[in-house]
Amino acid sequence: MPTPVRPSQAPVIGFPDMGQFWTAANLLSLSRAILVVPIAWLVYRGGPIGPMFGLIGLAIATDWFDGKVARWQGQVSEWGKVLDATADKLAAAAVTLALLTRPETAGPNLPLWFVLLAITRDALLALGGLIQTRRLGHFTSSLWSGKIAVTALALTVVAALLASPEAVLEALIWFTAAVMVYSIVEYTVRFRAILRYGPDALESDGNALRREGER
């Protein structure tokens, strides 16, 4: 009689077929990564506001359209998921670093601990994502806490760029930090469950994730 596989012995499936790289949707994601350079430079200099927000709007448009273009053309791929997430993380790191290091004359800055938290979170999620993708054989979707954290970070950045009142900016910083920490905890719970249970961790009723969260 075969020995049952324990959760800790869940097989490693390996990385998925990444699909086609050079697609219109992926080029949109790549263009967003390129736009990070002039955006970060303008943020560091404190403007001009018009070109800075124009480029930010263009970057947001590429983020909105890349997934839709991929679906319209039937070219949804694992490469697209990687490039989209990477472009977003590069943008967050570059802009928050610019807001940390820019001269005081350029506008309000973000505190060092906050920028380190944002960058560390993204780095941990990227590394954990690679490990769990190898276990599952496909990339996982973002958790709601992660989406809220990204939105809160974007609002904090905009508040800093618009030189919002100090009390407003400080409240956004602490709220965003709390959401980022909470999202790290949630992603850690899912990561541990995937390492222990493999694909069963993402079963529809969520029992595997609940078991891991109760440990």
Rank of each mutant, 00 (worst) to 15 (best):
E104I: 15
M180I: 15
A10P: 08
T96M: 14
R210Y: 01
R135Y: 01
I13K: 10
M52L: 15
M18S: 06
M180T: 14
F21M: 10
L136P: 03
A93F: 13
P2S: 13
G213I: 04
N109G: 10
S183Y: 09
L58I: 10
F191N: 05
L125S: 04
K68H: 10
P16W: 07
F21S: 02
L55V: 10
Y182G: 01
L195T: 13
T188F: 11
D17S: 14
Y187L: 06
P199D: 11
A24W: 13
A92S: 13
S141D: 05
V189E: 00
N207C: 00
S31W: 12
E104H: 13
A201V: 14
L125K: 02
A152L: 15
L99E: 08
L209G: 05
I194E: 03
L169R: 08
G54N: 13
L30P: 04
T151W: 12
D66I: 09
H138P: 02
I119A: 13
A193Q: 11
Q9I: 03
A94V: 07
L209E: 00
I119G: 06
D66T: 02
L90C: 11
L28N: 02
A208K: 07
V185D: 00
R135N: 04
A126L: 15
V115C: 00
D200C: 01
I60C: 12
V36A: 15
W113K: 02
P199Y: 09
W113I: 05
L27Q: 13
L161W: 03
S142H: 06
T105L: 13
D88R: 03
L117I: 02
L125I: 14
T151R: 09
L100V: 05
G198V: 12
I131S: 04
I49C: 05
A98D: 05
W41I: 15
D122H: 07
F191D: 00
H138Q: 09
V76R: 08
F114P: 03
I13V: 15
T133G: 01
L202C: 13
L169A: 09
E104A: 15
I119M: 14
I148Y: 05
I148S: 08
D88I: 04
P16L: 05
V168F: 14
W72C: 02
Y187K: 01
A193C: 11
E186Q: 13
E186I: 01
R121C: 06
N207G: 06
T156N: 05
G129H: 08
L117N: 04
I194V: 15
Y44Q: 03
E212C: 09
T140E: 12
R190S: 07
Q75L: 10
L116I: 11
P111R: 00
